[in-house]
Design a protein around this nucleic acid. Structure first.
Lengths: 144, 144
DNA sequence: AGGCGTAGCGTGCATATACACCTAAATGTC
DNA sequence: GACATTTAGGTGTATATGCACGCTACGCCT
C-alpha cells in the first residue's frame, strides 16, 4: 500500500473542496449580474427538472443535508422564486416547487451561466470534462 | 459546439460542490472523535508543511478567500492550535503558525483521517484517484 | 380507540464561504 | 519630507453547511 496517498495533502475531500472554491469564483463572477448565488442556481435548476418535490427528495438529489436545504430555500421562498406547500396527501411532507418568477430568474441567470460554462469547457476541453464529470458521478454513487 | 454540456446539470462548479458534499460526510464521520472539522484539518495540514506564513499566502494555497480564512482561523487560535503574530519585518503582515498543541491535535486527527482516506482509496482505486487528483489540480491552475 | 414506532421537517448552534468596505502600514513620487 | 498609492488584514452582512434535538403526522398493532 502506498504511503504517498495517505498524506493529508492528497485528501479526496480536501482536494474537492479546494477545487470547488477555485472554480466557483468564475461562475460567481459571471452570474453576479443575475443576482443568483451558486447554490440557488443549482436548487432552481433541479426544481425545474423535477417539478413539485418533497424537501427530502430534493436534498437527496443535491447530496445535501436536508436541514441545509431547508435554510437555502428560505431566501428563495422569501424572494418568491420558490413555493413551499404541505402535500395534500401527507401533511408531514412539504412540496417544493419553482414559481413562474423563479423560472424567469433562472432563465436570466442561465444566460450568464452559459458564458462561464462555455469559457470553462473551452479551457479544460469538452472531452476532459465529460470524463471528469463521469468520475465525479461515480464518486457520489460510491458514497451513497 | 455541443449543447449537451451547456445544460446546468453539467455545471462544473455545481458538480464539484455536490461531490464535495457527498464525500465530506465520510471524512467528517470518521474524524468526529478527533474534534477537528474538515476545513480545520486542511488548514493545520498546510500550516505544518509551510511553517509561519502570512494569512494571504495561506489563503492562496488553499484557494480560499483571505477573509474566509481569517474567520476559519478564529476557532483554531481560540483553541490554541494556531498562533497569529505580526511580522517583525512588516507590521502589516500577520504570520500564522501551528502550535505544539496544534501539531498534537493534527497527529491525533490524522489517525482517523487515514482510515477514511484508506477506505476511500479502496473504493475508487488508487490509480483512479491519482488521475482524478491530477485533473483537479489542472483545473485549479487553469482558473488561477 | 389508544398507544408506539417511524418518517418528514424545522430550529439552535457552530463553522464555512465570500463580497463590500474600512484601517493601518509600507512604498513610490515629487 | 509630504502626500498619493498600493498592500495586508479585519469586520459587517448574507448565504452555505451540517449535527443534535424536538415536533407533528402517519401507519401499524392490539
Amino acid at each position: 500500500m502506498t504511503d504517498f496517498l495517505l498524506d493529508p495533502a492528497h485528501c479526496v475531500s480536501g482536494n474537492l473542496h479546494k477545487t470547488a472554491r477555485a472554480v466557483s469564483r468564475l461562475y460567481a463572477d459571471a452570474m453576479r449580474p443575475a443576482g443568483l448565488a451558486r447554490s440557488q442556481f443549482a436548487v432552481l435548476g433541479h426544481l425545474e427538472r423535477l417539478g413539485p418535490v418533497p424537501v427530502s427528495e430534493l436534498a437527496d438529489r443535491l447530496y445535501m443535508e436536508r436541514t441545509t436545504l431547508t435554510r437555502n430555500l428560505s431566501p428563495l421562498v422569501d424572494g418568491g422564486l420558490v413555493d413551499r406547500q404541505p402535500s395534500p396527501q401527507d401533511a408531514r411532507v412539504k412540496l417544493v416547487a419553482i414559481t413562474d418568477a423563479g423560472r424567469a430568474k433562472l432563465a436570466e441567470a442561465r444566460g450568464y451561466w452559459r458564458e462561464a460554462q462555455a469559457r470553462m469547457l473551452d479551457s479544460i476541453g469538452e472531452d476532459a470534462w465529460r470524463k471528469l464529470e463521469d468520475q465525479l458521478r461515480q464518486l457520489r454513487r460510491m458514497v451513497r
